[in-house]
Computed example of a mutant assay.
Amino acid sequence: MVIGSFPVGKIFIHGVKRISKPFGDLLIWMGKHHPFIRRYIIIPPAQLYNTFEVRSKLRMLRLKQPRRIPPLSTPIATRLGADMLSEAFVFGIGAGLIYYELSKCEFFEMC
């Protein structure tokens, strides 16, 4: 199925992407005002992403791997974590819609 031929599908996808921006802003606000949420929900995915990114870039350049990757600063990690979680939110909506459409078919067979 090509989504380009369905203008309603394009509008819906654009709307879902627009929802992620206020969701990300809410996560950033919560990260600034709630230390528990910042420390245990928002920052760990950002630090993990940073570690994987640095290690993969060094591996691709065939450079020596450091023992410890320096952590991101709190504001940068908060922003990166909020962006990652808002994108995960959009991905979750898309995956849920796909699952819903497939679950309407019996045993996930073609309808």
Score class of each variant (00 low, 15 high):
Y100F: 11
L63H: 10
V90Q: 01
S56D: 12
R39G: 03
I69K: 07
L48G: 10
F23V: 14
I37P: 00
F23W: 03
P71A: 09
S56A: 13
M30T: 08
I76Q: 14
P70F: 05
K57E: 06
S73V: 08
Y49R: 10
E106T: 12
I37N: 02
A82V: 03
G81C: 03
P45K: 00
P70V: 07
S103H: 05
L80D: 06
H33Q: 09
L61D: 13
I42A: 01
I69F: 04
M60H: 11
F107K: 13
G96N: 13
V90A: 02
P44G: 05
E106K: 14
F91E: 14
L58F: 06
R67C: 08
P35W: 12
S73M: 13
D25I: 08
M84D: 06
P66G: 11
R62D: 12
F89M: 01
I76G: 05
I98P: 03
W29I: 14
L85S: 01
M30F: 10
Y99N: 15
G96Y: 03
G92H: 04
K32P: 01
Y40V: 05
Q47H: 02
Y99F: 09
G24T: 07
C105D: 14
T74M: 10
L58K: 14
I93Y: 02
D25W: 09
Q47G: 02
I42L: 04
G94A: 03
L72A: 02
A46N: 07
G81S: 05
I42M: 00
Y40H: 07
S103R: 04
F36K: 10
R62V: 02
E106L: 09
A46I: 01
G96D: 02
Y40S: 01
P66F: 13
K57C: 06
I69Q: 05
F89N: 00
I93N: 00
F91L: 12
T74V: 15
F36T: 13
Y100G: 10
I98G: 06
D83T: 10
E101K: 15
C105K: 13
W29V: 08
W29H: 13
R68T: 13
W29T: 15
L48Q: 11
F36C: 04
L85V: 01
R62F: 04
I98Y: 08
K104V: 04
R67S: 15
R55V: 03
A77P: 05
S56M: 12
N50F: 05
D83Q: 10
T51G: 04
F36R: 10
L27G: 01
L97Q: 10
H33T: 11
K57H: 14
I93T: 02
M84I: 08
P44F: 03
I37G: 01
C105I: 11
I41P: 00
T51E: 13
R67W: 04
I69G: 02
P35T: 03
